[in-house]
Write a protein that binds this DNA or RNA. Structure first.
Lengths: 337, 337
DNA sequence: TGAGCCAATGTCGACGTCGTCAATTGAAAT
DNA sequence: ATTTCAATTGACGACGTCGACATTGGCTCA
């Protein structure tokens, strides 16, 4: 591999001068700069970041730890947000996945420390509370799509499930819906409760009687291996004598099943029944006909802003107490009326 | 940061001896080993990989370059496969995304070279032919979910779209289907042609007259911003006077729209119409009721085996001419009969 | 007893980069 | 002409690790 000394020899200057040119330090003649740049181009020299980091004890690498990278489609958008930030700010991204295994997680931390990375984004693939082994974490860390347990102090950034669900429910109330069905997410998901609570709060604030709400559990069991009652429950709700005029689903995948149930019963969306989802998981929400009214999770921004928060932290400017919450916007499409 | 010398001082030995213990070299007394390990634990010493890599000019880092990480859900499984391999083999993964932008791609290569990584997995998020700027690539590189242009010599690993589609079609023929509809993927996708060709080949081999096949284009236009005719075409095909008994869709997302069209027309799956997809994109294939018969893309194995091929290459054992093709298995579920 | 050998440990320097400080040069100021 | 100063460049060492080689001391065997 070609090193700074090779460049120096070819350019006829000292290695330090090459270093100055590479790092754009002042007080180098235009002449010298050109000579050096020529040599650099000739040899295809690229600075060795490992060597650089030994001297400077900053690596400009940030690490991402994910738990269940593949169970939530499109949560990859979080990673993409981080990468875009990193690319724009001269950082590189180390990626590691734990599959939720504590031993693997410990390994990941060790590897990250061995690489002397500047900071860590701990990305939960479904919205939840995270407890980091207290001793482990000596690297600045930001929790993404999650927040810390009580007593732990890591900055965090997460979606406003409550607000999104509240707004979505208000959207339905404004359209005059009064009898509403609701199919819940797996209660293990933090979003499940926040979404349901917001639904109930908005309904109550809108003066809807609790007896006009039909609430069913759509899924339960361990993440990734849950049992799924959605289709059955949707059929059931839609067959009620005083059938709701709107059906709210815990997420878009559930909404898909609600569509199937409605169509199976000969009901038209949205003429006979309004169906809404959550997540704006586009492979589903845009494939459904009519397209699905839902709430967009700000995955990309979670990653991008999370990276920025981490950077503040690394530079000693951030606050360990920051809890950032990102708005989830209602996306109105054809499935609601 | 605590270094090997700190450990040496505390343990009362030389730094080299600590190095020996850390790297499990022979000819160290049990006594010494214990002393050193104690000091290591006390100080929380973790070897600095950057320093190590300077000496050894091997980093044990592999890079992943992705293009459109988020447009294909679950293609993240490729990355997961790579990570699992890396975790099991003591490697770390650097991740970079180009969004299909050539300038960003050039940057990524430069960054990877600056990190002196051992090799690169170039991961296409949809199956396609890839042309790497010839001059750029001086790092061992394996193409994943893609294969090189004629004349380029990089090993590659990709799914057997043709075989999967052929088997799927045979599955239908075996069940007695003779009038079959087909909705094509965006022709820009490599898989689109392979899947269609296999469909036609299998149909012909099965003695089906071409006039009994109804083939429609489901999508066209630039990836990520295509126009979608699937629902309309499905409605149309299913309304034909001599309606097919089976409808083959380019992928699962299209199959979803075919379901909706079928249900809209009052048809039952699979009693009135058999529908099959491709990809086994589980958020859709398992959410559909009945669940979808489809073909599984071996994303995870693409990543895992790709990493292994890269490792061979890095060690000088691999062949630059290797073109590995992974079988795509038919997954029979309730949507076909 | 002493030559020979091996196990155990240490010393030193190099990897590539850059911070520190010194050396050199030329021009401005006296 | 001499001093002063700033701009430019270079020599050197340190970062953390480990390979090459040296040293030490005890043991074996004739």
């Amino acid at each position: 591999m070609v090193s700074i000394k090779d460049v120096a020899r070819v350019a006829g200057v000292s290695d330090k001068t090459v270093s100055r040119v590479v790092n754009r330090e002042p007080n180098v003649t235009r002449d010298t700069i050109e000579k050096v740049q020529l040599a650099i181009a000739d040899l295809g020299y690229i600075p060795n970041l490992a060597a650089r980091s030994i001297r400077s004890s900053r690596t400009n690498i940030i690490g991402i730890i994910t738990d269940f990278i593949s169970t939530t489609p499109y949560s990859g958008d979080i990673v993409r947000g981080v990468q875009d930030w990193a690319g724009a700010n001269g950082r590189t991204v180390l990626l590691a996945n734990t599959d939720g295994d504590l031993e693997r997680e410990a390994n990941v931390w060790r590897t990250f420390k061995a690489h002397r990375i500047d900071g860590v984004l701990y990305v939960a693939m479904y919205h939840r509370v995270v407890a980091l082994a207290a001793g482990e974490v000596s690297i600045p860390t930001v929790l993404v799509n999650s927040h810390p347990e009580d007593g732990q102090d890591h900055p965090s950034i997460e979606p406003d499930d409550f607000g999104g669900s509240y707004d979505l429910t208000r959207h339905l109330l404004e359209r005059g819906h009064r009898r509403i069905g609701y199919i819940r997410l797996n209660p293990l998901l933090l979003g499940a409760n926040q979404r349901l609570d917001a639904f109930l709060a908005a309904a109550q604030a809108g003066g809807v009687a609790e007896t006009d709400l039909t609430i069913r559990l759509g899924m339960e069991g361990p993440i990734g291996r849950e049992t799924n009652y959605v289709y059955r429950e949707a059929l059931d709700i839609l067959s009620l004598p005083d059938r709701p005029t709107a059906l709210v689903c815990g997420n878009d995948e559930m909404a898909l099943q609600a569509y199937l149930a409605a169509l199976h019963l000969g009901l038209r969306v949205p003429d006979d029944i309004t169906i809404v989802g959550f997540d704006d998981f586009r492979t589903v929400s845009l494939a459904l006909k009519p397209e699905l009214t839902t709430v967009a999770l700000p995955y990309y921004d979670l990653g991008r802003q999370g990276a920025d928060m981490l950077d503040q932290l690394v530079q000693g400017k951030g606050s360990y107490a920051e809890r950032r919450v990102l708005k989830c916007a209602v996306v109105v499409r054809g499935s609601s009326r």
